[in-house]
């Protein structure tokens, strides 16, 4: 009767096992520092341009849209505060993470999936290497380090985008914009702005690795694994942020 639950429960169990082994390996040798640095370059440097671009334009759009609403109350001077709070608390982490999910969860799943279907993962095991240690843990560490950094950059460029609109279209001075944007931020905002991308990074890396490592069915299977990795990690980003927000809003 409960057969329909069997597969999701099995998937969750396998995901938890993979995650447990990936975290345990952080504290076990051998450590593959070269692989961690390589992944940081691929995920961090590789995503830098697109994250910067989207960060800047989200600030631009936010300032434009909010200026109209604020004008109703004659409060356009508050534009810096609104852009700052929205970006740092929510939009920066979520947008940067969604971009990295689209770019890197798919990349991880397709790379590991291809390795799986061409027996490279079996070969790795046969040649004395734990694939989770060699492939999953470095990607987990690399994503968890670089995604918060990418978020900081996205946040800053978003504020720059907001300032661009404030200065050119709203006649707000530089000091007025930046002081309001800076002073409105509390430790609570910065904390959640950094905790969120850290958690999202763990989800993105592990979901990408899980679907990659469990790929079956040849090249079609790689395509399916890639799609699932992006969809599942994106959904979890929204689920996690929805779960975290009530905690931080009440602080």
């Amino acid at each position: 009767m409960l057969d329909f639950l069997k597969r999701p429960v099995e998937t969750f169990q396998e995901f938890v096992l993979l995650s447990g082994r990936a975290f345990r390996n952080i504290f076990r040798s051998p450590h593959y520092a070269d692989d961690i640095l390589l992944q940081m370059d691929i995920i961090g440097a590789g995503s830098l341009f697109i994250v910067s671009l989207i960060g800047f334009f989200s600030g631009v759009v936010m300032a434009l849209q909010m200026s109209r609403a604020l004008a109703t109350y004659g409060a356009q001077g508050k534009i810096g505060e609104i852009v700052s709070i929205t970006l740092v608390r929510e939009l920066g982490p979520v947008l940067a993470s969604l971009l990295v999910a689209g770019r890197n969860a798919s990349g991880i799943a397709s790379e590991l999936g291809s390795m799986r279907v061409t027996e490279q993962i079996d070969a790795m095991r046969a040649l004395g290497t734990d694939p989770i240690q060699k492939l999953v843990t470095p990607r987990l560490i690399a994503t968890a380090v670089v995604l918060p950094l990418l978020t900081i950059i996205a946040d800053f460029l978003g504020l720059v985008g907001g300032y661009f609109i404030a200065a050119t279209m709203l006649d707000i001075t530089r000091s007025q914009y930046w002081s309001s944007a800076w002073q409105v931020l509390e430790y609570n905002d910065l904390t959640q702005g950094l905790i969120k991308p850290f958690l999202f990074a763990i989800v993105i890396a592990l979901v990408g690795c899980y679907y990659g490592m469990h790929t079956s069915g040849g090249t079609q299977g790689v395509g399916r694994a890639t799609t699932k990795a992006v969809v599942v990690s994106s959904v979890w980003i929204f689920v996690i942020t929805s779960m975290l927000d009530p905690l931080f809003v009440n602080l």
């Binding site: 061409t118 027996e119 490279q120 070969a123 790795m124 046969a126 040649l127 004395g128």
Partner: peptide
């Protein structure tokens, strides 16, 4: 073990592929 399609690591050059068991097998 020779795998069906060779099972070579795409990201490594041939020398690194062949050296892999020498550098990674715990017993060795």
């Amino acid at each position: 073990i020779l795998f069906q399609e060779g099972g070579l690591f795409d990201s490594l050059i041939i020398a690194e592929n062949v050296a892999y068991p020498l550098l990674n097998q715990h017993a060795i």
